[in-house]
């Protein structure tokens, strides 16, 4: 009798857990309501409404960082002008310096007072590293990024928040932790992923992994829409 009760409990937990996953992971939401368009007026008044925005961006390296900086510059009205705090994840110093130069330019030009916090993430995988080397560095990154992501996540709760990612590998780990915190700690996080401009006809590995997890998945070339019904295309954004 005890055994049966125990089994029932376990089954209940598993079922609840699965339901919870389905509720959280965007893949299971389909595209219904994918474009709840803001009225034009909203964008005008948006600086006021997103005053509390907690933004999290991750700077990859080289081309990824370049594209991210352009996204931030092009869409600064939503991303930074109304932000309460900007969390910047990075894994190499070049990206950090580039970001600081750019953000200084932008805030000078628009006379903004920005609150920025920097978080150093370990690289998930170096370009061209061996399989075993990759596995080890990925595992290390997973563990270390758990706490970093948690800290960022905590400052998001109860406020409008947005996580903007565009690769490379470390983004998968960040997204994974964000979604796990979402599932187990009931703290929603919203992820927008923008696939690299370099990807014209095939998703990157990071893109493929993030496809089910990102709340919005945006590609910059229309060919990528064919096999990816959840993807959205707005032309070249960077």
């Amino acid at each position: 009798m005890l055994l049966v009760t125990a089994w029932c409990l376990v089954l209940w937990c598993v079922t609840l857990f699965l339901v919870r996953i389905c509720l959280v992971i965007p893949l299971f939401h389909g595209r219904a309501g994918a474009r709840v368009a803001a009225k034009d007026g909203d964008i005008m008044s948006l600086t006021g409404r997103t005053k509390d925005l907690v933004l999290f961006v991750f700077l990859g390296s080289g081309g990824h960082t370049g594209e991210m900086l352009r996204l931030i510059e092009n869409y600064r009205k939503v991303l930074i002008e109304g932000s309460a705090i900007i969390h910047v994840g990075y894994s190499d110093d070049d990206s950090l310096i580039k970001f600081k130069n750019k953000i200084e330019q932008i805030s000078k030009r628009n006379s903004l007072q920005l609150k920025i916090q920097y978080h150093r993430f370990q690289k998930a995988r170096d370009v061209g590293s061996s399989l075993i080397g990759s596995v080890r560095s990925i595992l290390e990154t997973v563990v270390r990024s758990m706490l970093l992501t948690y800290r960022i996540k905590s400052s998001m709760s109860g406020r409008p928040n947005l996580t903007l990612l565009n690769g490379p590998g470390t983004c998968c780990i960040i997204a994974l932790w964000l979604k796990l915190y979402h599932i187990f700690l009931w703290q929603p996080s919203k992820i927008v992923y923008v696939e690299s401009l370099a990807r014209t006809n095939r998703l990157s590995l990071t893109g493929a992994i993030l496809y089910p997890m990102a709340d919005k998945f945006v590609v910059q070339w229309p060919d990528l829409l064919k096999n990816h019904p959840r993807a959205e295309h707005y032309g070249i954004l960077v």
Binding site: A37, A38, T50, Y75, K77, V78, L162, V192, Y234
Partner: peptide, 10 residues
């Protein structure tokens, strides 16, 4: 795209 970012954020 700007609207998309805005909608997701709020």
């Amino acid at each position: 795209f700007e609207k998309l970012l805005y909608n997701v954020a709020i």
